[in-house]
Amino acid sequence: MLDKTGFPLEMTGEDTPMVSFRKVRKSYGALTVLDDLDLDVSAGEMVSIIGPSGSGKTTVLRMLMTLERINGGVIYVDGKPLSHMPKGGQLVPANERHLRSRRADIGMCFQHFNLFPHMTALENCMEGPVQVLGLSKAEARDRSEELLEMVGMISKKDQHPSRLSGGQQQRVAIARALAMRPKVMLFDEVTSALDPEVIGEVTNVIRQLVSEHNLTMLMVTHQMGFARDISDRVCFFYGGRIEEQGPPAELFGNPQRERTQQFLSAVREAV
């Protein structure tokens, strides 16, 4: 069923994407950051977003996390509208209540980790499950310790973030997001604030997630080699639009568009 502007109230069927941006527009005043973005991400797919700064790539993740309101179009998660809610057969902008009910499917890791400084690593991971999901402390602790084990941070579980290195904080942040059991994980330049020698410890955790879990992931990154290694698809953003997208081998090995070629050669020169 479509609403009168032509957007489906719900997406159904076998091939329903986990995440779907339909004609999504975002602007700040006169500045258009994203222009009629159409992007589907299948369940279990790992999509990397690359592009020059200011191309709108981080905005894509922030809109999906509902940190930014959109100015046009509709975002769907798992077939149901996220940015909008159905009301009387129409899609109207979502209220906070609707956002809370849909946001549970999405988790996010930030460039600057954003761990809660007044809580230990373990408490950071337990916070969401206990407060938001209503788990018992014991359940939340088990779940959190398991995840801290997975990211290799169990030995530091009682440390506050101020005592941890950037790479360690980012690994805790990944565990904290996973503890909410999201269907979609967003990684927003998670290695950009790290010293070069600790980038590997974070990318290895993400590699492990890709190989062992069936999470849908969107990742904004400047690590071209990493994106090439682990992505199912790479999207090159330019000027608020997807300039080119495809499997990493094709996009990196044989880019079709001139802007993609320019960007990739500029990045290669910088390394």
Binding site: M65, R103, M108, F110, H112, L115, F116, P117, E127, G128
Partner: peptide, 27 residues
Amino acid sequence: VPKGQWEAAIALNMTTAQKYRRVIIPQ
């Protein structure tokens, strides 16, 4: 309190009351 703390609280799907009580006011 840095903006990132609010965003982390949203990413954990906290209510407004939880954001203040658990994240913002302690800091």
